[in-house]
Each structure stands twice: as C-alpha cells, then as structure tokens.
Simulated scan of single mutants.
Amino acid sequence: MYYWQRTRSHVWCESQQERWEVLWLDYGGQVELLWAQPLAIAFGHGSRLLGESHVPDFLARFTDGSLGLLDVRPAKRVDDHARLQFEETATICGALGWRYKVLAGHDNRATTNLDCLSASRHDRCLPTRETELRILEVAVGGRTRGELCRIVSPDCPPLACAWVDNMAWRRLLDVDLAAVFNSETVYTTADSVHEGRAA
C-alpha cells in the first residue's frame, strides 16, 4: 500500500516495483488520482489478441483532467507477447482519447533516495513560511543538507531535516537523487523558484 496524500487514501500495489512507480508518480506531481487495477480490457474483432484480456495496473487522472492507463513492467521483462499487449492497449487508449504508458523503472539509488525524501512529504513536515523563505535564501548557490539544517535550526539541526527534505519533495530545492544521500548531499534553490521570486 502507498499513502496517496492528495486523496488521503491508500493505493494498492501488487508488487514493490509497482509501489516504486507510484512513488515516482507522486513525486512527479502530474497525477491527481490513481486507481489500482481499475478495469479489464477484452480484446475483440480486429485485435491481434482476439479473445484475450488485459488488466492494466493503474488508471490515472492527471492534473489537467485527462485520463490514462499505466502498466508497470521492467524493460528486461517485456517479451513479445507483453509488447503486443501493450501496443493493443495503447491503441484502445488512443481511441478513447486517453494516455497510455508502460512504466519501466528508475535508477535504484535514485529510487531509494526518493523513498527517503518521501518520509517528509506529509503536511506535518512543512516548515513555516518564514523558515521556508530562509531556507530558499540560504540554498541559493547550493548548501549541503547538514549546513542547511545547522543554519535554520542551530539549537536542534535534526529538526530541520524534515523541512529541507519536504521542500526537496515539493521541488522547491533541487537535489541529485542519483548521488549518495547523506548530510553532505547538496541542496540548491530550484531554478523555477528563482524565476517565480524574480517575477
């Protein structure tokens, strides 16, 4: 199960691979609602899979209001039959005006680091507006996670870890998820924040 904060409900995942992909979807911020195994597609006349069926892993409603089906399958596990199944599903989605994508995985270290960040995605980890502005100011040009925490909470640096991680989750701070994640990890005020504050 994955806690989907936008709806304050859980999304059922059939495997850890699916849970990792849901984590990335959550971080991406383009999916508003997500349903697990929402429907079955029965392939009929004109399909190369006549008589077969397929249950996509997820149905997504995106933030622009559009819908789409998502399947999770590592690239190395996509055989000829699965490829055909995905092609036929994409054709049906196209006819419905829906999106379709096969989620094939991410870098293992980046996923592990994102999982660490996700522990601070909840509202309870939000810094005050004043603290958030201070962190954004200090992180211009880049600061290590340890430095940021010591600067914004000198009496108790560990308290600030949740704040800076929450801001990285919300993409207010840039961080290289593919690098080793520790107190020396560099956080930088995101370019989009620079642009937004300059406007």
Rank of each mutant, 00 (worst) to 15 (best):
L25Y: 09
A179W: 01
P38Y: 08
L159K: 14
D191M: 11
H81G: 05
K76H: 15
I135H: 04
H45A: 12
H122Q: 11
F86Q: 09
P158K: 09
A179T: 01
D115T: 05
G44L: 06
I41A: 06
A178T: 13
L96A: 08
A82Y: 11
V11I: 12
I41Y: 10
F43L: 04
L173A: 03
T89R: 14
Q5M: 15
L103Y: 04
R134F: 05
W4D: 13
L84N: 08
P56K: 01
V180M: 12
A199Q: 14
W169Q: 10
R48C: 06
V180A: 15
E52F: 09
W169A: 07
L67V: 00
P127V: 00
G142V: 00
S120F: 05
R121H: 06
Y3A: 10
M1A: 12
W24R: 05
Y100N: 04
L136E: 10
A42E: 15
K76Y: 10
L177P: 11
S15F: 07
C116K: 10
P158S: 06
T7H: 14
S183V: 06
S66Y: 03
W169V: 04
L50T: 06
A82G: 02
C93L: 09
A60H: 01
E132H: 11
L25A: 07
R121A: 11
R8Y: 12
A179H: 11
V175M: 02
A110Y: 02
N182F: 00
Y187G: 02
H81V: 04
I135Q: 04
D80V: 02
H194N: 13
V186Q: 07
T111F: 07
L136S: 08
W20V: 06
R109E: 08
A40Q: 12
D80M: 11
E147C: 07
A82V: 03
F58I: 01
V186R: 15
L96Y: 11
S153A: 13
A90Y: 04
L39K: 12
G28D: 12
S9F: 02
L23I: 03
P127E: 02
A40R: 14
R77G: 00
T91P: 00
P154F: 03
E21V: 07
L117Y: 03
R145E: 08
S118E: 14
D174C: 02
P158H: 03
S192I: 02
A162I: 00
R170F: 03
G97H: 09
I135Y: 04
Q17L: 14
W163N: 06
Y27S: 08
T112P: 06
R145Q: 11
E130L: 12
L173S: 07
F58H: 09
G44R: 14
R73D: 08
P38M: 07
E32F: 07
A168G: 10
L23V: 05
L33D: 15
R150V: 00
M167P: 07
D165L: 04
C116Y: 02
R121Y: 03
